[in-house]
Write a protein that binds this DNA or RNA. Structure first.
Length: 277
DNA sequence: CGCCAGGGACAAC
DNA sequence: GTTGTCCATGGC
């Protein structure tokens, strides 16, 4: 099916953004997205016109929400005042097209536990291997197989060597314990969406292997708490270098997480560029 | 406090 | 080719 999407949507930028690890560019401009047990192929035909290999029902029932198309990111960008904050303004201009996907909280919890102390290519490898090892085998619209993200039961019941072989290293027990908690019903992740962000953070950081950074990522990308602001080494550098007098969190509430994403991706790009020059 | 755990990417030598 | 550094968290 073809869809007109008026708001910001840049597949390449989202794919590289560090919020999703199962997007693959399968041919120029065409992306395969695996989310939970679903698989979509999507391509921009021209400005604002996209081709998707799913039915209208599946688009309306899943992918519209996944891509957060009910939110206007253009409007969120327009709230930035160039005179007051040149750096954020430039970051948002440069990274226009990024959205905060509405991803599954369970999938985000496990993915970001794995992400600690890894770079993006390494996270992709681990997550893909975990899906191959413990996920349900599926077939996409093109007749090719792919693997669904593993269920809590599947991970809770997996053997140690299976997890080890996915390159999880010392994170194995974190993944196993989190899976057990969700499988047992001790941890109800979807219910955290309804709670305030602070309570959600406290619950998440109560898990072994989940510190402040991982919890904020789960909150932002899995619970869609758009004000959640993950601070990693890159963001720390931005805050130190660009905002020596403090970052105006109050001014940017409740969209701190969206602006964090613009700054994160923008700063990483300009740093990598100046490194290689 | 400082170090270590396990390991891939990437830069520097 | 080989070595060094990065990275987020918890345990010691």
């Amino acid at each position: 099916m073809q869809v007109r999407i008026e708001d910001d949507l840049d597949l390449k930028k989202i794919s590289a953004s560090g919020q999703c690890f199962r997007w693959t560019e399968i041919s120029p401009g065409k992306y395969q997205i695996i989310a939970q047990d679903k698989c979509l192929r999507i391509k921009a035909l021209r400005e604002k016109l996209f081709e998707l290999d799913c039915s209208e029902e599946e688009y309306n029932g899943f992918w519209f929400n996944y891509l957060d198309l009910g939110e206007s990111y253009e409007w969120i960008r327009r709230r930035i005042n160039r005179e007051k904050d040149e750096f954020l303004f430039l970051a948002a201009e440069y990274e226009k097209g990024i959205r905060i996907l509405r991803q599954n909280p369970w999938e985000m919890l496990i993915t970001f536990i794995i992400s600690q102390n890894k770079n993006i290519p390494a996270i992709r490898r681990s997550v893909e291997k975990l899906a191959e090892t413990c996920g349900q085998e599926m077939t996409n619209e093109a007749g090719e197989r792919y693997f669904a993200f593993p269920t809590p039961d599947a991970l809770a019941g997996s053997r140690d060597e299976q997890l080890k072989q996915c390159g999880l290293g010392y994170r194995c027990s974190y993944v196993r314990d989190a899976a057990q908690a969700v499988a047992d019903g001790c941890l109800d992740l979807p219910s955290l969406k309804e709670l305030d962000e602070e309570t959600a953070m406290t619950t998440l950081t109560g898990l072994s292997g989940v510190g402040k950074k991982v919890a904020s990522c789960v909150s932002l990308f899995g619970l869609h708490h758009l004000n959640s602001f993950p601070i990693d080494v890159w963001i720390k550098r931005i805050l130190d270098e660009q905002y020596p007098n403090g970052y105006p969190f109050e001014d940017y509430s409740p969209y701190n997480g969206v602006y964090q994403q613009y700054m994160f991706d923008y700063y990483r790009k300009i740093s990598i560029r100046s490194d290689t020059e």
